[in-house]
Design a binder for these strands. Structure first.
Length: 525
RNA sequence: GUCCCCAUCGUCUAGAGGCCUAGGACACCAGGUUUUCAUCCUGGCGACACCGGUUCGAAUCCGGUUGGGGACGCCA
């Protein structure tokens, strides 16, 4: 069988980190199994769907390397097929139009099938009974059953459900007398549209049936039919509803495996009936656990950095994000974490996906990003950091060759591109200074004196090398009675304005004699 | 409210009844290297939610409790 999976986002906003994780898993599954990865844009909600959202989606997917097979499938372009499918169901009695009171046209409603005896996805789950509130009459018609259920505490809640879940239904009063038997009336209900209203009902006794499917990730999942309702598939205004469109398009695209977020589990029970009604084999399902934010809560609009585009602009590498996201809810089963795309594809199976939700950890992503940066091709690293510096607006007058040398010195300690702003001191005399560090390390008179000595020594020296720099510093330390090495940090701050960076000797050498001396002078005054 | 799902270090995870004194990674802490901060290296801290049951033996199987999450639209 040719495996065909799809990623089917609705373009109603930015691409969310959870959505793209779904896309990654879909893509991984397709690539691992040698199947097709299809993209379907579910733009039936015309009012909320925008071209801008589609563009961002495509851009994000491209950035992450999620290439899709075949043409993009736009759901809106298949609307006629959806309506036709509904019309056919109407003809064959699988769907109906309810009577509506107002002037608005009636929607088309799909009826959960009554006859499920030969349905391989429905099974009998024993007998069930529900306690009902006698003061609310039970209403039965072809569009379903309505009653008031009484819970253990005696609280009454009104419920309605499809008739499909109430085979062998008997309605009993408080004395146990049978008031109604569904098997006797079912013919009339469906063929003559008979309806009933039964007062004084105390108990519903029926054979419970449930719809069941085997989820590759979550295992066997089932839902009793008596908890399900018939569903609207075409609105009163004639437009198809998500459920219908989704299923029709899966049929159209010949989807074999539906891998999506687990917020769709409940929909699956209904979609299975829809696939059967259309006459298409039910696909294999896999429901992915969700990703929650750092507070452990589901992502919402408030989580500003939950958009894929934000990760890009903050300087995360696509491979690092991809690698990190693939590890959220999945692992190869051994201790590997940093893996190439090929390794991930080879190791990826849905059976290894966890069914519990995973919390996003910026720290770990940052660490992984740093690993990817450290092992980047140096030339590419120079290109990318240069681009970043350019967008930060400070490349004017900067010598590119010198910039490349600085990049070489700094590459192994970078975690994010925007950190290039901390390289400015190499190129300009105007740069930000860490005020706290300055006051902490450069307030002691002994230190200031020592810096002056170093300044004088370096100015007088003809050479300016790692060795000569180090020698000058050691001499100044011993002359001022400062412990060896204790001048390094004050010097770093005096010369770079920062408390962290590469080795101070290398940094000074890279900076050059002239700039180094000039900066030391401003502190030794 | 009803139905459904989930539960191992702070976080991501390994773990399919004995290889578990529960392994790895991030974070954190300490030491080493860099006569320096960071990087890097080594080490440490740190979890089977709880209660019962099955079993010679349970993180693993079963039941319950608690906690978290999801679904209940003429949204997708």
């Amino acid at each position: 069988m040719d495996i065909r999976v799809r990623f089917a986002p609705s373009p109603t906003g930015h691409v969310h980190i959870g959505n793209i994780r779904t896309a990654i898993f879909d893509w991984l599954y397709a690539r691992h199994s040698g199947g097709k990865f299809l993209l379907r844009v579910e733009d039936t909600d015309r009012e909320r769907s925008t071209q801008a959202a589609i563009d961002t989606l495509l851009e994000c997917m491209k950035w992450l390397g999620l290439d899709y097979d075949e043409e993009i499938f736009y759901q809106s372009k298949n609307a006629q097929a959806h309506v036709d499918a509904a019309a056919k169901m109407l003809e064959t009695g699988k769907a109906y139009r309810p009577k509506v009171a107002g002037p608005e046209p009636a929607p088309v409603i799909f009826r959960l099938p009554w006859d499920t005896d030969s349905n391989p996805d429905v099974r009998i789950a024993g007998n069930a009974e529900l306690i009902t509130d006698p003061s609310v009459p039970v209403k039965i018609s072809s569009s379903g059953i309505h009653f008031a259920q009484l819970n253990e505490k005696g609280k009454s809640t009104e419920r309605s459900a499809s008739l499909a879940g109430f085979h062998q239904l008997k309605i009993l009063d408080a004395a146990g007398t049978c008031l109604f038997e569904i098997e006797k009336e079912i013919g009339n209900i469906f063929s003559k549209d008979a309806s009933f209203e039964i007062a004084n009902s105390a108990k519903l006794v029926f054979q419970r049936r449930e719809i069941v499917f085997k989820d590759i990730i979550k295992g066997e999942l089932a839902k009793p039919l008596d908890g399900m309702k018939d569903l609207v598939i075409v609105r009163g205004d004639g437009t198809p509803v998500f459920h219908l469109a989704n299923v029709c398009d899966d049929v159209e695209q010949k989807i074999t495996h539906i891998i999506r977020g687990d917020d769709h589990v409940e929909n699956t029970y209904r979609h299975i009936f829809l696939f059967q009604a259309i006459g298409f084999p039910v696909p294999i399902y896999g429901h992915l656990p969700m990703i929650v934010n750092q507070a452990g809560k589901p992502y919402s609009k408030r989580d500003g950095d939950a958009y894929v585009g934000d990760f890009r602009s903050k300087g995360y590498l696509p491979d690092a994000l991809f690698n990190y996201l693939s590890l959220l809810g999945w692992s190869p089963g051994d201790d590997r974490e940093k893996m190439t795309r090929k390794e991930i594809i080879d190791a990826f199976t849905l059976e290894r996906v966890k069914s519990s939700s995973a919390q996003f950890d910026m720290n770990k992503l940052g660490n992984m990003n740093g690993q990817y940066m450290a092992e980047m091709d140096p030339a590419k690293f120079v290109d990318e950091t240069w681009k970043e510096a350019e967008s930060q607006g400070w490349t004017a007058g900067v010598d590119r060759a010198y910039f490349a040398k600085v990049a070489g010195l700094m590459q192994s300690r970078m975690k994010l591109y925007p950190q290039v702003s901390s390289w400015k001191f190499f190129f300009f005399d105007e740069y930000e200074k860490d005020g706290k560090a300055v006051s902490k390390f450069l307030s002691d008179k002994k230190v200031i004196d020592a810096i002056k000595q170093i300044h004088d020594k370096l100015s007088a020296d003809s050479e300016f090398t790692l060795d000569s720099i180090q020698k000058s510093i050691r001499e100044a330390e011993s002359l001022s009675g400062i412990q060896e090495g204790k001048l390094n940090q004050p010097l770093r701050i005096a010369v770079t304005g920062l408390s962290t960076g590469a080795g101070i000797y290398e940094t000074m050498e890279m900076l050059g004699k002239e700039k180094t001396i000039r900066r030391l002078k401003s502190f030794s005054a």
